[in-house]
Design a protein around this nucleic acid. Sequence first.
DNA 1: CTCCTAACCTACCGGCCGGTAAGTTTTTAG
DNA 2: CTAAAAACTTACCGGCCGGTAGGTTAGGAG
Lengths: 197, 197
Amino acid sequence: MNGQPADRVEETVAIALRLFTERGYDNTPMSAVADALGLTKAGVYHHFESKEHLLYLVHKHTLESQLVPLIEQAEAEPDAGMRIRRFMIDYVLLLARDPSAAMLINESRRLAPHHLAEIRGIWRRGYRMLRGTIIELQQRGLCREGVDPVYAAFGAIGMTSWIIHWFDRARGGNADAVARTMCGIFLDGILKDGARP
Amino acid sequence: MNGQPADRVEETVAIALRLFTERGYDNTPMSAVADALGLTKAGVYHHFESKEHLLYLVHKHTLESQLVPLIEQAEAEPDAGMRIRRFMIDYVLLLARDPSAAMLINESRRLAPHHLAEIRGIWRRGYRMLRGTIIELQQRGLCREGVDPVYAAFGAIGMTSWIIHWFDRARGGNADAVARTMCGIFLDGILKDGARP
DNA sequence: CTCCTAACCTACCGGCCGGTAAGTTTTTAG
DNA sequence: CTAAAAACTTACCGGCCGGTAGGTTAGGAG
């Protein structure tokens, strides 16, 4: 119930998340993780079978605590338009606030194939929610012609995700304005002229 | 005038582009580059002062031969709407066709700071062109309210660039349809209801 | 032919880093 | 208190890789 990690595994995952974000996965030797924990390298390897496994746990823990709730909140939204809006805005705010999200995206290539598949499955839940919502809008006749739900969903994800490459909250970036602009462009871009709120 | 590289430097850059794309920068030892050239490692280091320098040349050469012409073609387009359309479509087709573009985006972090700054300057030309075009549309009263030119430009770039993370031309991906859908969403998203062609 | 230079090779260095074997301390169970 | 299991430490290995010192070959100029 307090902010302290319950055990060494959680503590290590939290520290690795920070170090990987600050220095990158390849530039963070396990000795650095050990130092930050006040342990030796072998002490860390008592809890993790490999560095890749630690990276996998960092991915899994962070996505489940940050991304999944955000998807579930959006899914709970009854109105389709609001569902998209809710997700896009919260997602932009998340990426703008937390630089570790960018690390997860960049370093996912280092995962072993089966771990990568599992992690991509988590990301895919957001994609599926968006695509399903766009299909629903289409079936209700609210979408413009020529909007492919798959490509549109990836468009919304890409437009927002890309902020990891340019947004700098330290230099006067206004995350709220980014979120509103992008969400507005996307919804105006897929909805028929008469279907907007 | 033929397809053969004019000298060893060009030849090496071409081979490094291929190897970095296939295996990643970190997983491509200089010995692999040397092998592919039929040289030894020291033979390669006769032409390049460091591996990072080789990566820099790969970036520079590829961007100048692939991205810059695409930007200049778009800039030559007199109509603002067509300028955006032209760029977005050609850019999507480029990314969908050539996996090395994804490598350049992913591995740019390995560049030394001054090289990174120069390479980002090339990418930025596309951003500036888009932003300037959106501002032009705004001044002519063709844009919806609330469209920030900076965030909109990054939105167009992000929506299209993100296909490096999901598009798979080997599995029936239709790059033309992607390009048309995304370009349509973006233009419908920023232009007033009456301003579309 | 000679001389020079660019291109290239052999052989090596040094450091880093993931991972481990084997032993020691700490905690827990009974 | 005892014993075993869990949590560590010390000390090390082995491999890879970027980079280089110094010598060798090839090719063109004169």
